[in-house]
Design a protein around this nucleic acid. Sequence first.
RNA 1: GACCCUAUGGUCUAGCGGUUAGGACACCUCCCUUUCACGGAGGUAGCCCGGGUUCGAUUCCCGGUAGGGUCGCCA
Length: 447
Amino acid sequence: MKPRVRFAPSPTGYLHIGGARTALFNWLYARHTGGTFVLRIEDTDAARNTQEAVEVILHGLRWLGLDWDEGPTSGEGSHPSKGDYGPYFQSERGENYKRRVQELKDKGFAYEHEGAVKFRMQREPILIPDLVVGDVERKLTDREELDPDFVIVRSDGQPVFHFVNVVDDLEMKITHVIRGEDHLSNTAKHIALFRAFGVEPPKYAHIPLILNIDGTKMSKRDKGASLASYQEDGFLAEALNNYLCLLGWSPKDNTEKLSIADVVERFDLPQILRHNARFDFEKLLWLQGEYCRELSNDKFYELGLHALAKSGLDTKSLPADYVKAALETCRGKIKIFSELPAYAGFYFRDDIAYDPELAKKSFVPENKPRLQKLRDAFAAADPFTAGAIEAALKATATELGVKVGVLVHPVRLACTGNPSGPSLYHLLEVLGKEKALARIDRALVNF
RNA sequence: GACCCUAUGGUCUAGCGGUUAGGACACCUCCCUUUCACGGAGGUAGCCCGGGUUCGAUUCCCGGUAGGGUCGCCA
């Protein structure tokens, strides 16, 4: 029988990076085994469930490329979905839950208590066989000793998570439950519930959690906790997927950069690590750089335009060729698109703010005549191409008896405001002679 | 408080009874170079502690410590 796995998020308005990784591992397992990946929305908490909150989840998964075989196709009120085990919204599965509560009552496993319904939990330790952690014997805690039974239906009639989760997994014929380790302790309850229904529980695989870099729990308000923030910052889904795969799973042969297809081929539950991992933004950034450098010109242009537009830079009134050429000088230089406005903003606005530290070093009296001379050399360069610009600069440096750096830094500062950036010669060519000379003239008065 | 999981450089990890403890990110030095980035060559840095078992423990067992998780009419 082919595995059936599921990702069952609650629509809270954002998708946690740990949740995304759980979805990824489920998806990888389904794709690796030729199984089925089910998406189920756990929207029992009606108060905070909105169509937008569901869309956030669907959008996040789609961005990562984690397509689901069964589940919602949109977050609309009508809840369209695909698959034979729907509905895939818990809010629409009330009848199933009612029927299952009655079943437990009939079998003597559930009883009314102060308006709620409680499940008669066994007192003996429960063995949790886990594909990642191994066999875990879960004893009752001291509080549970006092009363091991737990509520499965609230006094307002709403069934609780532990119950609906098990009922849905059972009815959707889920074979493998791959989820965060935070659910390990509660798995005893789930196993007891499955047995009460007279069926064998699915196989469990509890995966380690993702922690902040300082080892603390990554909660909603921590930076980088929301999947959407990575897309907003201009990360590539490929890079994030790759990094997420490496957190808690290892190909065991020192490979770091793997395409998602490679991972699908190699992924399996036994290679999942047992200990929590800290989210290392720097390493993600390195992978991002790797993937960014491989981007096609068109894709780089598209993402670059988006990042510039988002920062309020006007690219529309400039010729497309100019914008394209400008962005091409940034390829292989930036790692993430959120760097772009600061890195290449000088192409798209004339009010250049000079880096104060470099200005102190570069805009000094002895450099004024040098820059003046260089300006004249540039003015004479025709055509104004990178090659001609380089030749003009080098000739001027030789004539002045200084190293090229003496001229390079002041010109770069005058034209871009930054201490570093794209290749100076290429950037000047793109900028064009007119703009370049104007910016040099403007800078000259600051000496 | 009880119960559960985990423990290799700063971080992610390979190794799982005998290794000069391997790789990657980050960091440092040098080279390349118009800056930066890339690339190349080096370098600093690690088996949590204490007991066992064993001829021999990073690797196995026990205890401690630390971190994480769970014990809700939240999910």
